[in-house]
Design a protein around this nucleic acid. Structure first.
Length: 422
RNA sequence: GGUGGGAUGGGUGAGUGGCUGAAACCAACAGUUUGCUAAACUGUCGUACGGGUAACUGUACCGCGAGUUCGAAUCUCGCUCCCACCGCCA
């Protein structure tokens, strides 16, 4: 949520920024400013009436104490007029406040200056590539065939027990999955992130805190009996640790990480895009989350990018980094880098991580602030996947396949306990 | 699932109708004293929003929502959450 003060002060800059998302917000901004103006004038009147009433009540109290019943009763009548005024003004103020709030909810974050205008995935900027695409002397098999051949994943069994998008991992597949989680966590901890094991369900307030609610409830699984939502990412519980928090001074840098399963209802497409591990309703992910002083955000983002690069290097996977264009960025993000690994048999790039800075957008909703020289200022939040498992697994299988089995990258072997799947 | 208790500022906790945005203590911060540490003393010490260049000032908030009253942290009603014990259970 954008701050109203900022909209008052930097209207033009905001409009220009949102244009990069192909959004013409001029009407909304006008409505916001007008509503804000109305709200303020109603609020000022209300405050004045309330002040008058408070004063009057005090006087009446003293008159009663002084035994001046008649005078007191006379004044009482005056308050009834003020009371109706107050009630009317209150209705107005509330109405303005509500419409202001819902207008503000509709505005996405303003893109960072690095973000280019664009409509879709094709407009994203490819800013980095590493690793080489493997050449096989045979026909490369897609991961769903490899998973079946080596008995690593059972999709049919998942359908039987739960439904599509809820696979079983078994044998070395399960072991590999666990190895990846452990590897990612160890790397994050080594980089200074504190590990959390968080709840996998959150309450409504947390859903609002990170911006899944209102609006995107359809993407989350919901437990009606208890009014809980299954988390779509560890970002939700981890970031909400800091909901309604004021950090005592400006000297902080909070780094958290956590492994959780992620649950996404994601209604959607058909065909090869969702085949195998490409899109699931339940998947595993290690997430890194940071809360930073605004001065440190750029540096933090760089560190996170380096961190993810390092993971992919160690897994010996070819990958590229995209800076998302305005039209492809998430609602709350100011700047997002997607990591994509190349999937050698599907012959396409698969998104495995998304690293974003949100600046004050989330913090404003969370009411996450810090105190500096008596002033309270909104913090900045950032997060990124490090990493999401299924597509990593898919590309590990596809890229590291040989005629005699699947080679496990060196860095992982200590975790898997085997170097090849045959 | 049953029974009871509770929700006040960073923490403990007082406060049953006006002088209470809230005692006291602890913590924190600043200062005085001090060879250092400690102690002692003094002061500061909630959030949001409005008005004002500012000093400052107004309003709201004692879990949430409604009500009674000239006036509510305090009384009434509804809700939510938390805790304890019992039952069940990994």
């Amino acid at each position: 949520m954008l701050e109203i003060q900022r909209i008052r002060q930097e209207k033009e800059a905001i409009l220009a920024g949102l244009a990069k998302r192909n959004i013409d917000a001029s009407q909304t901004i006008e409505d916001i400013l007008e509503t804000d103006q109305n709200w303020r004038s109603a609020k000022t009147q209300l405050d004045q009436v309330a002040a008058e009433m408070n004063q009057l009540a005090r006087t009446i109290g003293e008159l009663f104490k002084g035994g001046q019943q008649a005078e007191a009763t006379a004044l009482k009548e005056k308050t009834s007029v003020l009371k109706t005024q107050e009630a009317e003004l209150k209705v107005q103020v509330n109405a303005f406040e509500e419409s202001l709030q819902s207008l503000l909810y509709t505005l996405p974050n303003v893109p960072n200056e690095l973000v280019v205008q664009g409509r879709e995935a094709e407009d994203n900027q490819n800013i980095f590539e590493a690793g080489s695409i493997p050449q096989f002397g045979f026909e490369a098999q897609p991961h769903w065939d490899l998973a079946k051949k080596y008995k690593l994943i059972d999709f049919e069994l998942g359908v039987k027990v739960t439904g599509a998008g809820f696979p079983f991992y078994r044998g070395k597949g399960a072991r590999l999955q666990r190895a990846l989680i452990q590897f990612f966590l160890d790397e994050a901890i080594a980089a200074g992130y504190e590990e959390f094991i968080s709840p996998h369900m959150v309450n409504e307030a947390s859903g609002y805190g990170t911006g899944q609610l209102p609006d995107k409830e359809g993407q989350m699984y919901y437990v009606k009996e208890d009014d809980f939502y299954l988390i779509p990412t560890a970002e939700v519980p981890l970031t909400n640790i800091y909901r309604d928090v004021i950090l005592p001074d400006g000297n902080f840098s909070i780094k958290m990480c956590g492994y959780t399963p992620c649950f996404r209802r994601e209604a959607g497409s058909y065909g090869k895009d969702v085949r195998g591990l490409n899109r699931l309703h339940q998947f595993d992910k290690v997430e890194i989350v940071r809360v930073e002083h605004p001065d440190n955000t750029a540096k933090a983002l760089d560190e996170m990018l380096e961190h993810v690069k390092n993971l992919l290097d160690k897994l010996e996977l070819p990958y590229r980094i995209l800076r998302l264009c305005g039209g492809d960025m998430g609602f709350a993000s100011a700047l997002t880098y997607d990591f994509e690994v190349y999937s050698a048999a599907q012959e396409k790039w698969l998104e495995v991580s998304s690293v974003s800075r949100f600046d004050t957008f989330q913090a404003n909703r969370l009411k996450l602030r810090f105190k500096d020289d008596k002033k309270t200022t909104l913090c900045h939040t950032l997060n990124g996947s490090a990493l999401a498992l299924p597509r990593i697994l898919a590309s590990l299988l596809e890229n590291h396949q040989t005629a005699n089995g699947i080679q496990i990258p060196k860095a992982l072997q200590a975790y898997t306990g085997f170097s090849v799947i045959e």
